[in-house]
Write a protein that binds this DNA or RNA. Structure first.
Lengths: 109, 109
DNA sequence: AATCTATATAAATAAGTTTTTATGTAAAGG
DNA sequence: CCTTTACATAAAAACTTATTTATATAGATT
């Protein structure tokens, strides 16, 4: 599956977004990440695997724990896709505006 | 399901992203949207329903056809969540930079 | 009214997701 | 070495998604 697909799919889950939000404040272990959720540890481990495979986080090793951190440009593809769509939308509105202005100010909004 | 969840889930499918990209260039009917894809019409109708329920498109009626267009601020929630995460990441980097600069330039990257 | 056009809905299936419990593993500490 | 700590993996159940074929519907055309 393309990375952008897995990234968006990963982001579609509120638990995973909360994990990313936590990691934005700095590195954390699996236990630390799991603590806020009413969910088993394996479930959280699974979410982390999904995030890792989507390129959104990376995992290190320190003793018996596996600290997670955000992948610095894991969101790049998603952000750039959204930016591109936004740009296309706006250039379309501009063309519409131009058309309306030029040839019929009575057109509906 | 929260709108942001369904929006991200909707965006996670490449067919649906292609549909949105097409709509960014202007309104289109279901047949027009379906044409580029090697997929049945009901499958496309289903994708459109997913996009509509996610607040990403709206549908009108004109004769027997149902023209689709982008919902102007359907992406707002997604964009603002991403912006927020980005901001949190960067303020964290800033704090890290500050710490490293202030107290130990030998720290690892 | 009969039919055509554009689209929606339904039923079925195949595949994927989320979550749990149970179990495995690798590093640390006594 | 034995145990504890922190985590991963496996198997299973419940649910959701993507897609197809077949059928229904609503408006336009004749």
């Amino acid at each position: 599956m393309p990375l952008i697909d897995s990234a968006l799919l990963a982001l579609a889950d509120p638990t995973r977004r909360a994990i990313l939000a936590r990691l934005a404040k700095g590195e954390a272990t699996v236990m630390e990440l799991a603590a806020p959720f009413d969910m088993s540890q394996p479930a959280v481990s699974h979410h982390l695997k999904v995030l890792e495979q989507a390129g959104l986080i990376t995992r290190g090793r320190r003793g018996t724990s596996r600290p997670c951190r955000l992948a610095p440009d894991g969101l790049a593809d998603v952000e750039s896709w959204l930016t591109g769509l936004r740009a296309a939308m706006e250039s379309n509105y501009d063309r519409l505006d131009a058309l309306l202005a030029e040839d019929d100010p009575q057109q509906e909004t």
